[in-house]
């Protein structure tokens, strides 16, 4: 069991409280106090599952803008391309599918980066990350791909595209 650290509790509390304030959208005193109590309890119990590494890494303007650029410019382009591809396949009668599970290498070290890349891959229609394994230092994803033409590193290039590079810039170094 991991220990509950103060920065982890603080950052979880801030995120929970921000969500509460935005969802209730009122500044009445009872709303503020109830929200603080609930967020603090949630943070105390849940933070050790969420935050394992440095909690304050987002308080770095350069990183923040890299992340913003990724989520606003890089990722939506991949999303729209994949969606149009999937729409073409579905409207063409679903004949043009070659499903397969491929194993692709991943060159990311931190847990956050690996989780973010796995989620990005799953969010693009046509690919779902099913499992992650580690062999020595190298991590691998098992990805269900609707158009499995190739295998190994070549399939990795086709699936990850530009996403991995940007995620490495955001979460590492």
């Amino acid at each position: 069991m991991r220990k509950t650290t103060f920065p982890a509790v603080l950052s979880t509390f801030l995120v929970c409280y921000a969500f509460w304030l935005l969802l209730t959208w009122s500044v009445a005193a009872q709303e503020l106090i109830a929200g603080a109590v609930v967020s603090l309890l949630a943070a105390l119990f849940a933070s050790r599952f969420f935050i394992h590494e440095k909690a304050g890494w987002l308080f770095n303007p350069a990183k923040f803008f890299v992340g913003l650029f990724y989520w606003v410019c890089v990722f939506p382009v991949e999303l729209i391309k994949a969606n149009c591809d999937m729409a073409g396949r579905v409207l063409g009668g679903c004949k043009n599918v070659k499903p397969g599970i491929v194993k692709i290498p991943v060159d990311l070290k931190s847990d956050y980066g690996r989780a973010a890349l796995a989620n990005s891959i799953t969010l693009t229609p046509g690919t779902i990350t099913m499992e992650i394994t580690e062999e020595g230092e190298q991590a691998y994803y098992y990805v269900h791909w609707i158009d499995a033409q190739s295998d190994g590193a070549e399939a990795g290039e086709a699936i990850k595209g530009r996403m991995e590079k940007w995620i490495r810039r955001f979460w590492e170094k």
Partner: peptide, 30 residues
């Protein structure tokens, strides 16, 4: 609405479970 329609069509017409899940991703992304 168009992409939601495509996703639902995909769920109905795709050949197996995993491909249906792939098509359903269209609904909850675009």
């Amino acid at each position: 609405a168009f992409f939601a329609l495509v996703g639902v069509l995909g769920i109905l017409r795709m050949p197996d479970t995993f491909c249906r899940m792939q098509a359903s991703t269209c609904v909850n992304t675009l």
